[in-house]
Amino acid sequence: MKEIEIKSILQVYDSFDELPADVQKLMEQSMMVRDRAYAPYSEFLVGAALLLENGEVVLGNNQENACYPSGLCAERTAIYYAGANFPDISITTMALTAKSLKHKLITPTPPCGACRQAIAEYEVKQNLPITIYFMGETGKVVRSSSLSNILPLVFDNSYL
């Protein structure tokens, strides 16, 4: 038997104000759309703003359903919109923010497993990494230069 070590490299900004100006603008858009999420069951609001290589910004938020869990997360809402409307345009950057209506969320909140898999699919499809910034309502912001940092050993089409 042999052990292997898998490392993830993430950058952590102490606050929103430390982000580059263009990322602040993208994160502000994710905050705006987050606050319009439809989450009456979980009371957990998530917003996603995707910057495409052509400069277009695509927004998405979580949409819940009484037939839980048939709703959709913010990340996949935005990614699938981008895929449907801009199929040949790469996603360069994602800004994600989460907010709980039950308590103040200051912990950077990464995408769930299903969303990580969807992001991985688009990184493989476009053959380019997607830079991901994620945060809670306030506080620190985490930057990952690729989905592979938060989902090592990704399952992709090479296994099929």
Rank of each mutant, 00 (worst) to 15 (best):
S90Q: 14
S148T: 07
G113P: 01
L153G: 05
E28G: 08
L50F: 10
L10M: 13
E56N: 14
G47N: 02
G55Y: 14
Y133K: 03
I132T: 13
G55D: 12
S15D: 10
L128F: 08
N149V: 04
S145M: 09
M1R: 10
D35V: 04
M32I: 10
E18S: 13
A114S: 09
P87K: 02
G113K: 03
A82C: 02
L101N: 11
A114F: 02
L147S: 02
V33Q: 01
Y159V: 13
L151Y: 08
L26I: 06
K104T: 09
S144T: 08
L160S: 15
A49E: 06
I4Y: 13
V57I: 15
V33T: 04
A39T: 09
N62Y: 02
T77P: 00
M1L: 12
C73I: 00
I106W: 03
A66L: 14
S145K: 12
D35N: 14
E64D: 11
N127I: 04
I132W: 02
L50D: 01
L160V: 15
I106G: 10
A66K: 14
D14F: 03
Y81E: 14
L50M: 13
M31K: 15
G55L: 12
N61E: 05
T93S: 10
Y81V: 06
V154H: 02
K102W: 10
S144F: 02
A95V: 09
Q11P: 04
M94N: 11
N61H: 09
R36F: 05
I106L: 10
T92V: 12
Q11W: 12
L50Y: 06
G55K: 14
M27Q: 06
M1K: 12
R34L: 03
E121T: 06
S145I: 10
P129G: 13
C115F: 00
V57E: 06
K25H: 13
N61R: 05
I4W: 11
T131N: 10
Y122T: 06
A74P: 00
E121P: 00
L51Y: 07
A98V: 07
I6F: 13
A114E: 04
P110I: 03
L153H: 06
V58G: 00
C112L: 02
A82I: 01
S146L: 07
A37E: 01
V124D: 10
I6W: 11
S145L: 12
K2H: 14
L105M: 05
F155N: 08
T107P: 00
S30P: 00
S42F: 03
C67K: 13
Q126G: 12
Y68N: 14
R34Y: 02
C73D: 05
K102S: 07
E123A: 03
L147C: 08
K140I: 08
V141T: 07
V33N: 01
L153N: 07
P108Q: 06
L147N: 06
S100L: 12
V141D: 04
C67N: 15
A48E: 02
V46D: 00
S148D: 07
E64I: 04
G83D: 11
A21V: 14
V142R: 04
A82G: 01
S90D: 12
Y159Q: 15
L51N: 11
G60C: 08
Y80S: 03
L50N: 04
R34K: 07
Q29A: 09
